[in-house]
């Protein structure tokens, strides 16, 4: 089983890289298409104004639009479609990896840094696939897929040895929910991070070829709306667990403190989005800070100790 899990991970990693290559190629191809007006003209019939919002987002998956317009096959479009399919299959493989692992070790995949990293990677791809499906903003893949690649490579580098659970980690149900919910929240936050980055690199009013700032602003917010209540749940479940295992719901352990920081930054973001003078760029910066805090929480126990350090 462990072997299958390992194979699935590698398959998933290769697919993520392939998808990334597709998207990057689309980007470069599209640029050259734009420079040749005649060619671009040929595609116009199939295009709606939405196309120019997002280089990677042709009307391939907008069901209605695609049926109204004659199907125009261009290389970028086919490539973008491949990218989408690759990420979806990568998600399937990564899911398989985690399932095999769970069967093999007899508990949820969250007892060491390897398992956490693979799960985090899973959360990112899952969130990406979901938001791509809902909002057709593929460009965020250019940020999310490299992050996922990095995480999976990191997982491979720390090694896949399975350890038995020390007593504190044996409260399985609570731990399973705590970590599973965290993975989804972190996945959602990585989407809002990507959206915020794309927002921040654009001048006021947007730049041709990138998704509109208003769309990115909205996407970032949508992702936080999912992530924030879930993160709250994670922190609360963590407190319940700490109460049961250590007799204190809160002990200012660095990992707890870091997740409080994350919670506060996203809380600030939610208020920033309706406060005068904070709407827009400053709010986007808070999303970047929030994700930095997620990474600090995640990798923190590599450089600070504390009660959570058994997770090393």
């Amino acid at each position: 089983m462990l072997k299958y899990s390992q194979y699935s991970l590698i398959a998933s990693l290769m697919l993520v890289v392939l998808a990334l290559v597709c998207y990057v190629l689309v980007l470069t191809l599209k640029k050259s298409v734009r420079q040749a007006p005649a060619m671009a003209q040929a595609g116009v019939g199939a295009r709606t104004s939405v196309d120019d919002d997002d280089v990677l987002d042709d009307d391939v998956d907008g069901g209605q639009r695609a049926t109204v317009a004659p199907v125009v096959t261009s290389r970028p479009r086919a490539l973008a479609l491949y990218g989408t399919h690759f990420t979806r299959v990568a998600l399937v493989f990564l899911t398989a990896c985690l399932v095999f692992r769970t069967i093999a070790v007899g508990h949820g995949p969250f007892s060491n840094q390897y398992e956490f990293s693979v799960s985090f990677g899973w959360g990112m791809i899952a969130a990406y696939v979901y938001f791509e499906h809902r909002y057709h903003v593929r460009t965020i893949a250019l940020l999310i897929l490299p992050l996922t690649t990095g995480l999976l490579l990191y997982a491979l580098s720390v090694g896949a040895t399975a350890n038995p659970l020390v007593p504190a980690l044996q409260n399985n149900l609570l731990l399973t929910i705590h970590v599973a919910v965290a993975i989804i929240a972190y996945g959602a936050f990585s989407v809002s991070f990507a959206a915020a980055c794309l927002y921040l690199i654009q001048p006021e009013g947007g730049r041709r070829g990138l998704p509109k700032p208003a769309v990115l602003d909205e996407l970032g917010y949508r992702a936080v709306i999912i992530g924030f209540p879930l993160l709250t749940l994670v922190v609360v479940l963590g407190a319940v667990w700490a109460q049961i295992a250590w007799g204190t719901y809160w002990s200012w352990d660095p990992k707890e403190t870091a997740s409080l920081l994350t919670w506060l930054v996203y809380g600030a973001y939610l208020h920033a989005r309706v406060a005068r003078g904070w709407v827009g760029r400053r709010a986007a910066w808070l999303l970047v800070a929030g994700f930095a805090s997620v990474l600090l929480t995640f990798f923190g126990n590599l450089f600070f100790g504390g009660l959570h350090s058994y997770a090393k």
Binding site: P254, T257, A258, L261, H271, G300
Partner: peptide, 13 residues
């Protein structure tokens, strides 16, 4: 204020 609390948490981390 929320960000201030965040800053203290960062220091504490």
């Amino acid at each position: 204020l929320i960000l201030g609390l965040g800053l203290l948490s960062l220091i504490g981390t």
